[in-house]
Amino acid sequence: TEVDLHLGDITIKLKDVSEEIVKRAKELFKNGWSAEFVKKWIEEAVK
Rank of each mutant, 00 (worst) to 15 (best):
residue 38 V to C: 04
residue 15 K to P: 05
residue 11 T to W: 02
residue 8 G to N: 06
residue 16 D to F: 06
residue 27 E to N: 05
residue 18 S to K: 09
residue 37 F to Q: 15
residue 2 E to D: 13
residue 12 I to Q: 03
residue 4 D to F: 07
residue 27 E to I: 07
residue 11 T to I: 14
residue 33 W to E: 11
residue 14 L to C: 06
residue 7 L to M: 09
residue 30 K to V: 09
residue 44 E to W: 14
residue 9 D to M: 11
residue 36 E to Y: 03
residue 17 V to D: 01
residue 1 T to G: 13
residue 42 I to V: 10
residue 24 R to S: 07
residue 19 E to P: 14
residue 40 K to C: 10
residue 37 F to V: 13
residue 45 A to G: 03
residue 16 D to M: 05
residue 33 W to P: 01
residue 10 I to K: 06
residue 46 V to L: 15
residue 39 K to A: 14
residue 46 V to G: 06
residue 32 G to L: 01
residue 46 V to S: 10
residue 19 E to A: 11
residue 11 T to L: 09
residue 36 E to L: 04
residue 12 I to V: 10
residue 15 K to H: 13
residue 9 D to I: 11
residue 13 K to M: 11
residue 31 N to F: 07
residue 30 K to I: 10
residue 25 A to R: 00
residue 44 E to Y: 10
residue 43 E to T: 06
residue 44 E to Q: 11
residue 22 V to A: 08
residue 47 K to D: 08
residue 13 K to T: 13
residue 28 L to Y: 07
residue 21 I to C: 06
residue 24 R to F: 12
residue 10 I to R: 05
residue 45 A to H: 13
residue 17 V to H: 03
residue 39 K to C: 11
residue 22 V to K: 04
residue 33 W to Y: 15
residue 2 E to I: 14
residue 30 K to E: 15
residue 4 D to R: 08
residue 37 F to E: 14
residue 45 A to R: 07
residue 36 E to A: 08
residue 6 H to D: 11
residue 21 I to F: 05
residue 30 K to N: 15
residue 13 K to Q: 12
residue 36 E to V: 04
residue 41 W to E: 00
residue 20 E to D: 14
residue 30 K to R: 08
residue 45 A to Q: 14
residue 26 K to I: 15
residue 32 G to K: 01
residue 29 F to Y: 15
residue 20 E to H: 12
residue 39 K to N: 06
residue 41 W to A: 01
residue 46 V to P: 02
residue 41 W to P: 00
residue 3 V to S: 09
residue 39 K to M: 14
residue 23 K to P: 00
residue 33 W to G: 05
residue 14 L to Q: 02
residue 7 L to H: 03
residue 38 V to E: 00
residue 29 F to P: 00
residue 13 K to V: 13
residue 31 N to W: 07
residue 11 T to D: 04
residue 26 K to N: 10
residue 21 I to M: 10
residue 3 V to C: 13
residue 23 K to I: 10
residue 44 E to R: 07
residue 43 E to A: 06
residue 19 E to T: 10
residue 25 A to Q: 00
residue 27 E to C: 06
residue 16 D to V: 04
residue 9 D to F: 05
residue 11 T to F: 06
residue 31 N to K: 09
residue 16 D to L: 04
residue 36 E to R: 02
